[in-house]
Design a protein around this nucleic acid. Sequence first.
DNA 1: TGACTAATGTAATAACATCACATATCGAGA
DNA 2: TCTCGATATGTGATGTTATTACATTAGTCA
Lengths: 134, 134
Amino acid sequence: MTTAHELTKNQALVFNTLSRAEGPLSAYTILDQLRGDGFRAPLQVYRALEKLLDYGMVHRLESINAFVACAHPHNHSHNHGMIAFAICEKCGQVSEFSDDVITQRVREWTSQNGFKQTKTTIEIRGVCAACGTA
Amino acid sequence: MTTAHELTKNQALVFNTLSRAEGPLSAYTILDQLRGDGFRAPLQVYRALEKLLDYGMVHRLESINAFVACAHPHNHSHNHGMIAFAICEKCGQVSEFSDDVITQRVREWTSQNGFKQTKTTIEIRGVCAACGTA
DNA sequence: TGACTAATGTAATAACATCACATATCGAGA
DNA sequence: TCTCGATATGTGATGTTATTACATTAGTCA
Ligand SMILES: [Zn+2]
Ligand SMILES: [Zn+2]
Ligand SMILES: [Zn+2]
Ligand SMILES: [Zn+2]
């Protein structure tokens, strides 16, 4: 859905935690940051994340088991393109971008091979510009 | 390295297990299959996998926490291109392919953004042709 | 009201991965 | 041959990530 979503209390707490964070957070780190707000169990975090992922407001980074708030908060649909993430292993910074050529190329492979794609993960690990020159 | 590798006993056991498997296996599934060969602890599997990953003989699928034998056993270097995986969520089949355009496109983004890439994950989840028509 | 759905709370458990430390194996070089 | 260092292995404990199961609460709509 592209419309705005009324977040429940827990969803809002988790989303705000991710939005304020410098970089991606693990579910358990989110849990720890929300202990003061009454969170006591992982499931409270995972359930909120599930909805936020549905809404496109949060992304899951598969290669580091962490979650990050979407960098394009007013365009959660990303125009139907696939999203790529560049993750700095030094500072944790995540850059989110969408590339039409890559999207097109993946679609070509899947259509040629009769593969019905549901979700695609593109994650680039490395060192960001700031950390590389430091 | 592109040269052949002398595998140790444990490495060979793990590699053979993955080679014989229909699809990707988790480390703990590998462990269970090797109990009869004296494997008792996860670390025996993870240590072997680490080497096999180094050698390029095995790939890790980040989005499903599983490992698969390389589909191109005689070209472990993959010609320096990035590797993409299409993973069927019905039957587990994994198709491995390399796309020069995608590789080039990722390189363009990283060089334009001063990002020093070390490893890139491209994983397409969905349903394969065989399962889609079944 | 009652029936239904979505959200929440909580404990327990499962699944995935690493740490710490001891032991073994093998080859290069004195 | 002996010694040393590098690599590989064995094992238990621990750390980290995610889900199952069940009970409860809160809103929605005949
Ligand atoms: Zn986004
Ligand atoms: Zn950085
Ligand atoms: Zn391969
Ligand atoms: Zn299939």
